[in-house]
Amino acid sequence: MERRIMPRESLEARYEQYYKRLYNYFYFRAGSHHDAEDLVETVFEKVVENYPAYDAGKAPFDVWIFTIARNSLIDFTRKTQTAELPEDARADSNPEREVLESERDRALADAVAELPEREQSALAMKYFARLKNKEIARILGCSGVNTGVILHRALKKLRVILTEKGVSPYE
């Protein structure tokens, strides 16, 4: 079988298409801009490396790339030894960027970090990576219904956490 190589222009297009979703997914899981950038880069390296083995008939590209993203995050978490990053790792060291960064995004990131891993994962895939429940289910290895349950519980807890932090999640 002929070995498929991902063309550069295709890589660039995919990068444009997925950068924001991957970045936001990683930011809310890893907690810093620096780590989010590194992880996005790692994912694209893996995408290019593994592209010859990608079978569109087995999984949509969305599912494939976010499976890679999730695995990269697990790898990253293992290396840093803790999923719960210290406060200073969450903050950006660049003061100018700190000013630019949305306070609400940070509050959300902190609140999301307090959820159990599985709920964090589902939430990040749903809202930051913009995946559908069915796609999340495939990545998490559970049913679409279970994904809905996880998300429902996660949102419920998130409301409580945000309220405690003084951010109103209500209308």
């Binding site: 924001k20 936001n24 809310f28 949305s102 749903k126 209308e171």
Partner: peptide, 18 residues
């Protein structure tokens, strides 16, 4: 709802440096 709107609108990539 508002929480979901907050989640969807969150976009730290807007401040991504690189």
């Amino acid at each position: 709802n508002k929480l979901e709107k907050m989640l969807y609108e969150a976009d730290p990539s807007a401040n991504a440096p690189g």
